[in-house]
Design a protein around this nucleic acid. Structure first.
Length: 274
DNA sequence: AGTACGCCCTGGCCGC
DNA sequence: TGCGGCCAGGGCGTAC
């Protein structure tokens, strides 16, 4: 389940491997992975022969900036992977490889996705934002205490606020649980009930947890791998996520798990007060 | 407006 | 070495 830290790790790997290179061809094995296009032919036509200027990230989306006007947007969904295959390596396509981007000398990027919730599309640079409709970037310098205060001025439960991509981009189920534990805030608390001190802790926790996870090269619960096929390490440092019944590291109270809007939600009933 | 829930989808796991 | 049933959830659509 790639969230911001996993996508950021993949982005770095892509910039190490295929930045500045020209796309020789793109092969779509599963047409439904391509969204927002009348035909895959149209998408292929716009990508083939183009150079990748750089790879950026917006929330959980990867942006391949092409010369001169287009951008390829990839969303990895739950189980999407972007795997780099070095030049002259034998092609290893399994049934979950839905898209292959070919460079020269057999160098490739494989877009794999077991559950097929991922997607890709091509849009003009100036249409990226309106296509994604995402909120604030939590690691950007303009994500201030005031930004967070505005975002959380709502009766919506704080866990849902953090996961709402239109408010904050890139935080999913794992990191929202971890961030709320770190900030000592109960997941069911309404955003507008947060006191100034809690907002400050939440703002700090968003930065520290996401950066810590990036330093670990992401979180490998099951499917996540970076472009080199390597796992991340953050799963070894979970404070609450998938630790139902285990003791809280701070107070030894068993971690609770509840359902919220169809998603599992983990927290310490003692450390996280409503 | 906020929330619940179904849908897309596959693999892992459980019970028999 | 089955097999049915359930679960995981990102994002979106729909219903209340």
């Amino acid at each position: 389940m790639p969230e911001l830290p996993e996508v950021e790790t993949i982005r770095k790997g892509l910039n190490k491997t295929v930045k500045g290179k020209r796309i020789k061809d793109i092969i779509i094995f599963l047409p439904k992975m391509v969204r927002r296009h009348s035909s895959t032919q149209e998408l292929i036509r716009r990508i083939r022969g183009k150079k990748i200027v750089t790879i950026k990230r917006r929330g959980k989306a990867l942006l391949f900036i092409l010369d001169f006007t287009d951008v390829i947007i990839f969303r990895l969904g739950m189980t999407g992977q972007m795997l780099w295959s070095h030049p002259r390596a034998p092609l290893r396509r399994d049934k979950h490889t839905h898209v292959i981007i070919d460079f020269s000398k057999g160098e490739r990027i494989l877009f794999k996705d077991i559950r097929q919730f991922g997607e890709m599309c091509v849009v003009k640079k100036e249409h990226v934002e309106e296509t994604l409709t995402m909120g604030a970037e939590p690691l950007h310098r303009d994500f201030t205490h005031e930004t967070l205060k505005t975002i959380t001025s709502s009766p919506v439960k704080i866990k849902n606020l953090l996961m709402d991509q239109k408010r904050i981009a890139g935080i999913g189920n794992i990191y929202s649980d971890e961030i709320l534990f770190e900030a000592g805030i109960h997941p069911l608390k309404s955003g507008y009930l947060l006191r100034s001190r809690e907002l400050k802790k939440l703002h700090q926790a968003i930065g520290s947890i996401l950066n810590e996870a990036i330093a670990c090269k992401g979180d490998t619960i099951s499917q996540y791998r970076n472009v080199f096929g390597e796992s991340g390490n953050y799963q070894n440092f979970h404070r609450v996520y998938q630790r139902k019944g285990e003791n809280c590291h701070k107070c030894s109270t068993p971690i609770k798990r509840i359902k919220l809007s169809g998603r599992s939600c983990h927290y310490c009933p003692s450390c996280q007060k409503s």
